[in-house]
Simulated assay, not measured.
Amino acid sequence: MAEGRSVVIDGVTHRYGESVAVEGINLDIRGGELVSLLGPSGCGKTTLLRIVAGFLRQTEGRVIVGDQVMDDLPPSRRAVGIVFQNYALFPHLSVAENVAYGLAARGAPKVEQAAEARRLLDLVQLGAMAERYPRQLSGGQQQRVALARALAIRPAVLLLDEPFAALDKNLRLDMQIEVKRLQRVAGVTTILVTHDQEEALSLSDRVAVLSQGRLEQFAAPTTVYDAPETLFVNTFVGSANTMPGVLLDQDRASARIALDAGGEIVARAPSRRIASGARVVACLRPEHLRLTEEPEGIAGVVEMALPLGPTVVHEVRVGAGSPLKIAEPRLGGAALRPPGTAVRVAVAPGLASAFPAA
């Protein structure tokens, strides 16, 4: 396979008339890296992928692969492999012919086409199905054929557009593992478009979170989850409880917040300084909270208990706001707290995030 090359998205903006699809996006993707473009529908992630592929010409900015500016090159000359959500296999071609299609279109000798198709089908563990047709394969098998076809042209960049969306949960997990394995073996730089947070966090070397055409954060999955830079990232990626309050004081590492629901918490310092006395929103992951007997906890009442295998999630009403979700390990045989149980909620210090109130 061709060695994965770096991809630089340099100040890319794209407009559809008066509507801005993406605005001023800057990403520096390292060679061989797997990066996810994560965000809700309409955030601009597919537009950005189509710009990298050459299907759209951006209004402003540049796309650079390796040391070459791509903007004037058609898709066929960008050394880009693409796997779509619906796989887009040719129904009248066999599996081997589908895999070899890109090579045939480039005029490769038939002997080379056949040899490369065999090698890649063995790589995706479908060598025995080379003569079958797409209609004779399962969804997961069709996806592996689509991956093999994309890799056959030895791309510098592999683009995956929601490739797991049509698969059921168990098969989706199997295919995510398979894609990660193939990507590592091939060493190809990969950009994955997804709206699935777990998918992005588990597969990616780094995640670019988009909202309304703007880049909210670009960082390693653990950083995006543990240290979100904006309120949108905190509430979109994973579960988060939001609690309004007042910023009492802060230093470089931490901030002290008086919650409207009662009590004080110590949160991570905001990414930009906020004046003392300003209204803020504290965001707390369910696993950052626990039920306690200690008197300094925030008083609340259990509204619901949801056992989720090894974890139980309690919904606890504190004050007049939305109930808090609290995730705790569920020990075997432990009784759930029934609705109406008076409890106190303790907050792990320094793990909450604080943002200016809207």
Rank of each mutant, 00 (worst) to 15 (best):
R149I: 00
K180M: 13
A105G: 03
A186D: 01
L167Y: 12
L167F: 10
G187F: 13
P163H: 10
L159K: 08
L93S: 04
L89C: 06
A130G: 04
V188F: 11
Y101A: 06
A148D: 00
L167V: 03
M129F: 12
Q142C: 09
Q142H: 04
L160T: 04
A108T: 04
L182W: 05
K169T: 13
R149C: 05
Q142K: 11
L151Q: 09
G139C: 12
A186Y: 03
V95L: 06
H92L: 05
I177G: 11
V188P: 01
A115E: 12
L159W: 04
Y133I: 06
V157G: 11
T189C: 13
L173T: 13
A130Q: 06
R106H: 02
G102T: 01
Y101L: 14
N98H: 06
A105H: 08
A96T: 01
R144Q: 10
Q136E: 15
G187L: 13
L120Q: 01
L158C: 09
Q183E: 07
Q136H: 10
K180W: 02
H92Q: 11
R135D: 09
L137M: 10
Q136T: 08
L167E: 09
F164G: 04
A108C: 13
L123T: 14
D122S: 14
L137G: 07
Q136D: 11
V185G: 06
A105W: 02
G187Q: 13
L120H: 05
N170L: 15
P91N: 05
S94L: 04
L126V: 02
V185I: 15
L103G: 04
L160A: 09
K110I: 13
Q183F: 10
P134M: 07
G140D: 03
V99W: 01
A96I: 05
A88F: 04
L93H: 03
E178D: 14
L159Y: 03
A88Q: 05
L182I: 12
L147W: 01
L160I: 02
L126Y: 03
Y133S: 06
P109D: 15
G139H: 11
P155Y: 07
L93R: 10
V185F: 06
T189V: 06
R154C: 07
L121V: 02
G127W: 01
